[in-house]
């Protein structure tokens, strides 16, 4: 699977060699391969279309006579464009609040509760913070227990109120508790919700308004398909979130949703989840993600992990 696209592009561009430079006509087949690779990677249909158009504009007129493998040249153009699309530098997290309030949001099962724990653990160990986790999912069976188990695993306190079914009130009480007990970061775990669920979207908008978080994070499963754009846009419309978390990248998905989301909301992808354990969190590197989407393997990350 690795280098698949680059091979295909070499083949498609083989004919180009005699022509000296890339033209409208001879690049058509290649662009089809690029588009196909993007769609197979779950990049949104419209975004893939626009993207290939832009690549075409960049490619036309490029000299291929001097390149031994024209496919590599195209891959480079495509990769650079992808990397740029996903945002240059790894974006950090804003910890300026007193305490810093971080609100998690996202669809059901995307990995919010797990990531809340990972982030608390990361901030505690790497940034010497004293985080508090707050359990605002009052719907999912055993959601509060789940956060408590996670908190116990990493030795981070969890604030919950089982008798209370108002997430806004729990969030506020959690923040008050944090202030009283000297926590400098508060991570608010919320229930999963669909963007079309008006009542639930209003609820999270209300939480957001009441607690004024420094960081609102949108947690998304990296296996998501074409729907990623709709969901990201709907959550962003309501929350104007600050960053995206891509989870479950320890799987073999290409993760084209990353591009789709970035293109549609233009917010940085801040962290990735790479496993179920509390240590499985990493900062996001656009160029590695570009390799992955193109099917060239997340080689660098794998090497670093080993």
């Amino acid at each position: 699977m690795f280098n698949n696209l680059s091979e295909k592009l070499d083949k498609a561009l083989h004919v180009l060699k005699g022509h000296g430079s890339i033209t409208e006509v001879n690049v058509a087949e290649t662009l089809k391969e690029v588009r196909r690779a993007l769609l197979d990677a779950d990049v949104n249909f419209k975004i893939a279309k626009d993207f290939t158009k832009r690549v075409k504009e960049k490619a036309i007129g490029q000299n291929v006579l001097t390149t031994l493998q024209p496919g590599q040249l195209m891959v480079k153009i495509v990769k650079d464009e992808l990397t740029e699309l996903m945002g240059g530098d790894a974006a950090g997290i804003n910890l300026s609040g007193k305490p810093t309030i971080i609100l998690m949001s996202g669809l059901q099962g995307s990995g919010k509760t797990t990531f809340s724990g990972k982030l608390a653990n990361y901030l505690k160990n790497k940034k010497t913070k004293k985080p508090l986790l707050v359990a605002c999912d009052v719907y999912r069976p055993a959601a509060i227990d789940q956060l408590h188990v996670v908190g116990d695993q990493i030795n981070v306190e969890v604030y919950s109120d089982k008798g209370n079914n108002d997430p806004v009130a729990i969030a506020q009480a959690g923040i008050a508790h944090a202030k009283q007990h000297g926590h400098n970061v508060v991570i608010i775990d919320t229930a999963g919700r669909l963007a079309v669920d008006e009542a639930m979207m209003t609820e999270i908008a209300n939480i957001h308004k009441a607690i004024e978080p420094q960081e609102t994070l949108f947690v998304v499963d990296s296996m998501t398909g074409q729907d990623a754009v709709n969901t990201a846009k709907a959550f962003n419309d309501i929350l104007n979130f600050d960053g995206v978390i891509l989870t479950k990248l320890d799987g073999d998905t290409r993760g084209g949703a990353a591009i789709s989301i970035k293109s549609v909301v233009n917010k940085p992808i801040k962290f990735i989840g790479t496993g179920e354990k509390m240590e499985a969190i990493d900062v996001f590197y656009p160029s590695r993600m570009a390799d992955r989407i193109l099917g060239m393997g997340d080689v660098v990350s794998l090497v670093e992990r080993a």
Partner: peptide
């Protein structure tokens, strides 16, 4: 809401457990 990765899921779970039935969830969304 899973994209093309679902193919690989079907393949590998079938290899491990001979999957006989599929259920698709969360179709109340978009």
């Amino acid at each position: 809401s899973t994209g093309q990765n679902a193919f690989e899921q079907a393949k590998q779970f079938t290899a491990a457990t001979e999957v006989t039935t599929l259920a698709v969830t969360k179709l109340d969304g978009t």
